[in-house]
């Protein structure tokens, strides 16, 4: 099947999910992101690549951090950024998703950055645009339902490569609410494509997806066993807002079993790094002593995230 994310020359035209992207494309994005990190060090933190382009941040679900980093990335590329909090406007008046997209396209949009509570919404938009002769408009998935959050996955890979260089010797442990996490799905896809030999999943059975057996990962319910000799520990946020029913006894109980404390982190390799996509629930999935400790690379993740998003936007707009 033709991958809707790539054009005939194999160039990235939309970023919808990491699943299905060739390894070379992933590596190309990571390589391209590196020079963008330097732009932030200049007196004028702006380069002219996307001058005159309009980037619409189309957020059907609330988000501060992701929306802001996309906005900063687009602005550093000199694009005009329009933020739409759609949940609060047209949709509540009954407009359909594709009508919203058509209206914004008529305002000469060049790129949509889409977050939506329904898995597949960005795909639907990309398909609609190409079916209606507007294939020049690019779509970036900024998180759809439980499906994917590809730029988060990519910035995580950038961070891992920055600290660990070689993916093919690593043991990576992903800890927490994997069931509800689109971040985890994008991370697993990316780690697999980049050749990480051991991917571990540490979670209670109630927070693991039913299809976990097909993901090619090792599952641990005991955090102490799962963390042993890990090079990278990727924490996930406990997604309170997505919890339905009694999946967990209490946040305190969860912290006791699956919270990352200095004492549990000591079981990982001495040079292990700790990552978190944010926002953190201190005292629920992560202890402050770890979050603020020397092994945490949580703030560099945020900084790298801007460079990775700049790279993706430049590659799409130039394809």
């Amino acid at each position: 099947m033709l991958n809707p994310q790539l054009n005939r020359n194999g160039e990235l035209v939309h970023l919808l999910s990491i699943d299905g992207l060739p390894r070379e494309v992933l590596l190309k994005i990571l390589d391209t992101a590196a020079p963008f990190t330097e732009v932030a060090e200049r007196e004028v933190k702006k380069i002219p690549l996307l001058r005159g382009k309009s980037v619409f941040n189309l957020f059907f679900e609330p988000s501060t951090r992701t929306r802001t980093t996309f906005e900063i990335a687009a602005k550093r590329l000199s694009a005009d950024v329009i933020n739409l909090n759609v949940g609060a406007s047209s949709q509540s008046k009954g407009e359909t998703l594709l009508d919203t997209v058509d209206n914004l396209s008529a305002m000469q949009a060049d790129m949509f950055v889409v977050r939506h509570a329904s898995s597949g919404a960005p795909y639907l938009i990309a398909q609609h645009l190409s079916a209606t002769g507007r294939a020049h408009i690019h779509v970036i998935n900024a998180g759809d339902g439980r499906h994917a959050h590809p730029t988060q996955g990519l910035l995580d890979m950038y961070t891992i490569r920055h600290y660990k260089r070689d993916f093919t010797r690593l043991t990576v442990a992903i800890v927490g609410d994997i069931l509800h996490s689109r971040v985890a799905r994008s991370q697993i896809d990316a780690l697999t494509i980049l050749g990480v030999p051991e991917i571990r999943m540490i979670a209670p059975p109630t927070l693991l997806p039913a299809e976990v057996g097909k993901l090619g990962v090792r599952v641990f319910h005991d955090m102490r066993l799962g963390l042993r000799d890990a090079d990278v520990v990727m924490m996930l946020r406990l997604q309170n807002e997505r919890m339905q029913g009694a999946l967990l006894p209490s946040p305190q109980e969860y912290f006791k079993t699956y919270g990352l404390t200095p004492e549990k982190l000591a079981l990982a390799r001495p040079d292990a790094i700790v990552m978190h996509p944010g926002p953190m629930n201190r005292g629920v999935e992560i202890d402050s002593a770890v979050a603020d400790g020397p092994r945490a690379v949580i703030l560099p993740q945020v900084t790298f995230g801007i460079a990775v998003r700049m790279a993706v936007m430049s590659m799409l707009a130039g394809a």
Binding site: E11, D31, T32, P35, L49, G318
Partner: peptide
Amino acid sequence: FYRDDYGRRGLHRDPKPS
């Protein structure tokens, strides 16, 4: 990042940091 032909040719294949 400053080329005037980005609109026609896209991003240079292998950009390096300044």
